[in-house]
Design a protein around this nucleic acid. Structure first.
Lengths: 337, 337
DNA sequence: TGGGGTTACTACAACGTTTTCGTAAATAAA
DNA sequence: TTTATTTACGAAAACGTTGTAGTAACCCCA
């Protein structure tokens, strides 16, 4: 427990508390010699101002919250790193909350954030979020909100995204050019706009190349490991086995690898695979995985930067600036012709 | 900004602030009907108590800090998940700080934590930490500290570790049994006790099997990617090329794969590889990687549990209880005989 | 009828900062 | 010399909660 406070400094220096406070904040109202005395003693006594007293008085916590569905995932981990970097630079603190892909948890979290504990929130939706009241409530409390990656179209707030539509298009096109004619798309919860966009890119790419768009080839995978594994397995055991797979998230690509291994299917000979992914080991997989890599770190930095712009310049209100950071296609062996 | 407070509730109900406060905390001093009235209005007005006022008054923040060297790493990410899970269960909030493997940053972080912002700290040292004054300072301020994984032997505090010595021994033994006779050990900064222990396990395993222990086979890799890549490359180009490699951290194993690819060395035919690692894709690598997997999630949970035991003082305060969670050897193709 | 005890509340002072409003003293302007 | 203005500080009131110390009102039993 921190015990040295302004009062003690003031007593020691024969000054008033307010003078000490002002001196430490380098106020022009305090003479240079006095400031020096205060600085010296504060340093000597290792004075650390109580952040809670300060927050209470100033109605500012210098703390932000990051709410994400999971952290054991290179994309979100890198995003956190980006956010933390910017935050610490700006003297802010970062609270982390994991919704574990559960809407109920996401709601409980945002609800607890209404207390004024944080000055702002950076959030990436969990897969099943449909109801957005909990997000609107945050805004009603005047707590700035910035989305990244899994944004919410129905909420007016800044958003940091990747070019999901284009990436979906390019990924599918890449498979087509590699010779695939029966391409499956694996995706998660369709309540997410990123899933929509990626899928649209997929569909339009098929159209553009005059390939049929078979609804059976679009697999909406469940959230549980087992469920999605089964679904992917069923897909590969169906009459029309795909010769190419575009996975909208990394986890699904990993499962495709496992399923193929189980079923004795060869990648890329029997089926080619491409996926949104930030795996560090993509190039070391067997075979190496062709990925659409999102600039996760930069997205985190960007989201934080936007948030701090809002927090520090209240007068400039940009209701919903959107930043689009392009993902990058990294061609590897899993889509070799 | 949160604006509904106790005072407003009190006014509306014709009660005193203290009564409302007590009613909300379900105090026995308040009659049931009054409590009900208070609860109802609080819910209706969506009252959220100001956490900073409460923290100031109670000298407790219900917040902990997690300080780790990096997050874009499955081990630390899972540990965070474990910590966050326990914390939220207990009604605590988790601040995250990344030291980026820089002692200076680690010190700046712990220094800022002296302010009483957090009730406790969970920390994993960065590779180069030697000076431990910043950690002792935390303890002098009576801020409970719990280490996990990269613990600090010189500081008296609870520690959550894996059986590093045994794991080092077993990993090396596994290579020996697979036929390796010239085993290299790749490690990071030797100021870390986990590195020491893993290395000791390695050395003693060699001794146990009457194999020579060549100092040239122990490579202390630098922190930068380029540096360690060069060091590993040099190792493989040296006169006595190892036929087995025991990597003490995942990152180095990944680099071994890259180096081998560059040099045209085959794993496991030319060189067998085993590594401490929590890679989800270990089994999908080319070849699949034999790992010593630490129970990262459980370690996080355990560290948090110990910290909360201390914070809540329900149990006897044990100054430095140490918990050892065993790592698990997962044999895969990279060490096939 | 009064002393003791319980019940259900209230008043007020913390907690450590920041900020508003003052004000003595020193200096400048008249 | 008198009157403004500046300089450098202090007193006190916030911020919203919680804990301590009361205290009316009622009941119990002698």
């Amino acid at each position: 427990m921190n015990t040295v406070n302004l009062k003690q400094l003031a007593q020691e220096l024969n000054l008033s508390v307010s003078t000490v406070s002002r001196a430490l904040r380098d106020s022009w109202e305090i003479s240079t010699p006095t400031k020096q005395r205060v600085f010296d003693l504060a340093r000597k006594m290792n004075f650390q101002p109580n952040p809670y007293a300060s927050s209470l008085r100033k109605h500012r916590s210098r703390t932000i919250a990051v709410v994400i569905p999971e952290v054991a995932n290179n994309f979100f981990a890198l995003a956190i790193k980006g956010i933390e970097t910017v935050a610490r630079e700006k003297g802010y603190h970062v609270l982390i909350y994991l919704s574990n892909e559960e809407v109920a948890e996401e709601m409980a979290i945002t609800s607890s954030l209404q207390s004024g504990r944080v000055d702002g929130v950076i959030l990436s939706l969990c897969g099943a979020t449909q109801d957005i009241r909990h997000l609107l409530e945050l805004q009603q409390r005047n707590i700035p909100l910035v989305f990244f990656d899994r944004v919410c179209d129905n909420v007016t707030a800044p958003k940091v995204m990747t070019n999901d539509y284009e990436s979906g298009f390019v990924a599918t096109e890449h498979l087509i050019k590699a010779g695939c004619r029966n391409i499956a798309h694996l995706t998660i919860s369709m309540s997410l706009s990123i899933s929509h966009k990626r899928q649209e890119g997929y569909i339009n790419s098929l159209r553009r190349w005059d390939l049929p768009c078979d609804p059976a080839m679009i697999v909406h995978c469940g959230l549980s490991e087992e469920e999605s594994y089964q679904q992917i397995r069923d897909l590969f055991l169906s009459d029309k086995r795909p010769d190419g797979v575009f996975a909208s998230v990394e986890k699904l690509a990993v499962q495709v690898y496992h399923v193929c291994r189980e079923l004795g299917l060869r990648i890329p000979e029997d089926v080619k695979v491409i996926s949104f992914s930030n795996l560090v080991t993509a190039s070391l997989l067997n075979p190496s995985l062709t990925t659409i890599a999102q600039p996760a770190y930069d997205m985190g930095k960007e989201a934080a930067t936007i948030l701090f712009r809002r927090l520090e310049k209240k007068y400039i209100v940009v209701p919903d600036d959107q930043v689009m950071l392009p993902a990058k296609l990294e061609v590897r062996n899993s889509t070799m012709a």
